[in-house]
Design a protein around this nucleic acid. Sequence first.
DNA 1: CTGAAAGCGCTTACAG
DNA 2: CTGAAAGCGCTTACAG
Lengths: 331, 331
Amino acid sequence: MRPTINDVAKQAGVSIATVSRIINGQTGYTAETRKKVVNVIQEMGYIPNAIARGLVNKRTKTIGVLLPSLSSRLSAALLKGIESSAHQLDYSVIICDTESDGKRTVEYLDVLSEKQVDGIIITSEWLKDVYEEAIEAMKIPVVLVLTSSLHLQVPYIKVDDYQASYQATKYLIEKGHKKIGMISGTKKDKLAGLPRIEGYKQALSDNRLSVSEDHIAYGDFAYKSGVRCMEELLERSPDITAVFAASDEMAVGALSCAYKRGINVPADLSIIGYDDTQDAEMAIPPLTTVHQPIYEMGEMAVKKLLNIKESAESVIMPHYIIERDSVRKMD
Amino acid sequence: MRPTINDVAKQAGVSIATVSRIINGQTGYTAETRKKVVNVIQEMGYIPNAIARGLVNKRTKTIGVLLPSLSSRLSAALLKGIESSAHQLDYSVIICDTESDGKRTVEYLDVLSEKQVDGIIITSEWLKDVYEEAIEAMKIPVVLVLTSSLHLQVPYIKVDDYQASYQATKYLIEKGHKKIGMISGTKKDKLAGLPRIEGYKQALSDNRLSVSEDHIAYGDFAYKSGVRCMEELLERSPDITAVFAASDEMAVGALSCAYKRGINVPADLSIIGYDDTQDAEMAIPPLTTVHQPIYEMGEMAVKKLLNIKESAESVIMPHYIIERDSVRKMD
DNA sequence: CTGAAAGCGCTTACAG
DNA sequence: CTGAAAGCGCTTACAG
């Protein structure tokens, strides 16, 4: 058995109240008793029980994070920002891989609630009505990252997807491209999906380029859907000279598809991605993409959740295009 | 305030003992009282407090995972396997990004200990003596993944790195390559580093090929070090026709370096990786690599940790070479 | 079948 | 400066 506060109190010949004060750095003891107690703690290898503490303090110093997919680099970068910031503030993080599954999401919300987490970060997931109810019922602070909520009064941290997408498309137009395809996320996703499509379309029509559904293929943000979408696009509209992909992973999928077919990027086809994860840096050729400050958003999410410094208001983070080698200027 | 077991007991007109029995599915109550209590629970939206439970049960239903780097695909895949398996068994997982830093590692070990986790999984990190002491002192079940320990009597789950590396090198030899370079992890890593170098050297000398330190470059398993190492190799030994990289990320780095220099893979240079993460699949060209069953190792780690089914013994997992398009047969 | 009570390991007024 | 005691929200013998 691990020693408890009782054991050290007994051993040191003081009360547990005194031990408690000492380990919590409060006042109310002589240097001498402090020394005595600290020694006993060392000797016995006493470690306070955070569970017991949590019960009385009503704070567990842990937060939960809901992610739609643990394995993407987007999630990983976000998670790294969250974990780093949490650790710095002395919080632990419990991860929940929802796999974009409704049932799992609700299960996790319950578990986190039972485990009395001090807050929950929900990432990149379009919130269904069911979750929204569950979230309201929990009465636990929540912040959203890479997503937002229509009904819920909850702070979110994200980029302006519409604007970012508009600019990515405009970038291609300025490079002289006129037939521009888009590899989109799913239409149903009203947050990461729809606005990016709208931004793309608007940029096109603002520049008097024709908007055609034939130029849009619908994926799910993951690699495989990227290669499939590129194939569809090539089939339906072989005349396109550039493609805007709504995620780096899909952009890399497009790259793979092009490579397989002997299409040279950027000579024959230009591709711009979205996210600026490490996938973009590692791609061949290195991918020009829309940078989202993902790691920073993760950090900010926990600060906001724990009310450190920042206000409880939502924030739109800055984005920008980072130029690498996957887009060519047309002559 | 959230309702407690006291509130529902009062409301239902029974004792908290009865409520406890009912929510824990024990016996000792009539169907009628059960119904009454369940109704009250529904009405009040009562959720049991896992912290209070943990205090009395001495089980928190949560495990901790130490990772050297949250952002690699290797960690992500492992984590996904761990999380999936844990969730299935009704456990939560706390993540700890050690960043390969000793101080952080010790901090995390302390925190996990305080939070009374039921077990700890330590991944891909060469264990220093300090940690080993800390681990022994904790008296919490531990299992190692992708690593092992010289002193500690703790089960581990990994591949035979020496063998795998030997076979990867042999594979290149069988394809007709005679000048084979290696991009290694750090020499200091006695587990993921050294054995892979040894396997490579042994395969070479078993096939009467010369072993030269000039043919080895030392990275740190990450992408950037892969490109740097490839550059070094090209400089030192421009005559090599094939490279074995000790991680997929470094292999992709090598690919990038080759691309930048106009060296065609596999026509001019063959590359084989290690891990078989999604990086290998997404690479251009798709990367031939040594497959480690990473996700499965994650799953197995939690089962072993929680003593479900498997024994407490270490296990060497099978590996194999998965052929894609980055290695050419020499004529 | 059911409840009173002790106890899990802490923190925190309160009293001295 | 220090300690006895209550209480956090549960579970679990024990008694009836």
